[in-house]
Amino acid sequence: MLTIHPYVNFPGNTEEAFRFYQSVFGGNFKALIRFKDTPEAERMSPEDQEKIMHISLPIGDSMLLMGTDALESMGHTLTMGNNFFLTITPTSRHEADEVFAKLSAGGKASLPMHESSWNSYFGMFTDKFGLQWMIDLDLSQQ
Rank of each mutant, 00 (worst) to 15 (best):
A70G: 12
A70H: 01
A70P: 14
A70Q: 08
A70L: 00
L71E: 12
L71T: 15
L71V: 13
L71F: 01
L71H: 14
L71A: 11
E72L: 05
E72R: 05
E72W: 00
E72K: 10
S73T: 14
S73Y: 02
S73D: 11
S73F: 02
S73R: 03
M74C: 13
M74S: 15
M74E: 10
G75I: 00
G75H: 06
H76W: 00
H76A: 12
H76S: 14
H76G: 07
T77D: 12
T77G: 13
T77W: 02
L78M: 06
L78A: 11
L78D: 10
T79M: 07
M80S: 15
M80K: 04
M80V: 14
G81R: 04
G81P: 06
N82Q: 03
N82E: 07
N82F: 00
N83H: 12
N83P: 12
N83I: 08
N83W: 02
N83V: 07
N83L: 04
F84D: 10
F84C: 15
F84E: 09
F85A: 11
F85N: 15
L86T: 04
L86I: 14
L86Q: 07
L86K: 08
T87G: 07
T87L: 14
T87R: 08
T87A: 09
T87F: 06
T87S: 15
I88P: 14
I88C: 11
I88E: 06
T89M: 11
T89N: 13
T89K: 04
T89D: 10
T89G: 00
T89L: 08
T89Q: 12
P90G: 01
P90R: 00
P90D: 00
P90N: 03
T91Q: 14
T91R: 10
T91P: 13
T91Y: 01
S92Q: 05
S92D: 04
S92F: 05
S92P: 10
S92N: 01
S92E: 01
H94C: 00
H94N: 02
E95A: 03
E95R: 03
E95N: 03
A96G: 07
A96P: 11
A96C: 10
A96H: 09
D97N: 12
D97L: 07
E98Q: 13
E98L: 13
E98S: 15
E98R: 11
V99Y: 12
V99E: 13
V99S: 09
F100S: 03
F100I: 04
F100P: 12
A101Y: 00
A101H: 03
A101K: 07
K102D: 11
K102W: 01
K102N: 07
K102A: 14
K102L: 10
L103G: 09
S104V: 02
S104W: 01
S104K: 05
S104L: 08
A105G: 01
A105Y: 07
A105D: 13
A105Q: 12
G106V: 04
G106A: 03
G107D: 09
G107I: 06
G107Q: 02
G107T: 10
G107P: 04
K108C: 03
K108L: 00
A109V: 15
A109D: 06
A109F: 01
A109Q: 03
A109S: 13
S110L: 10
L111P: 10
L111N: 12
L111E: 06
L111D: 05
P112K: 05
P112N: 08
P112T: 02
M113S: 06
M113I: 14
H114Q: 09
H114C: 02
E115D: 13
E115F: 03
E115W: 10
E115V: 15
S116F: 14
S116K: 05
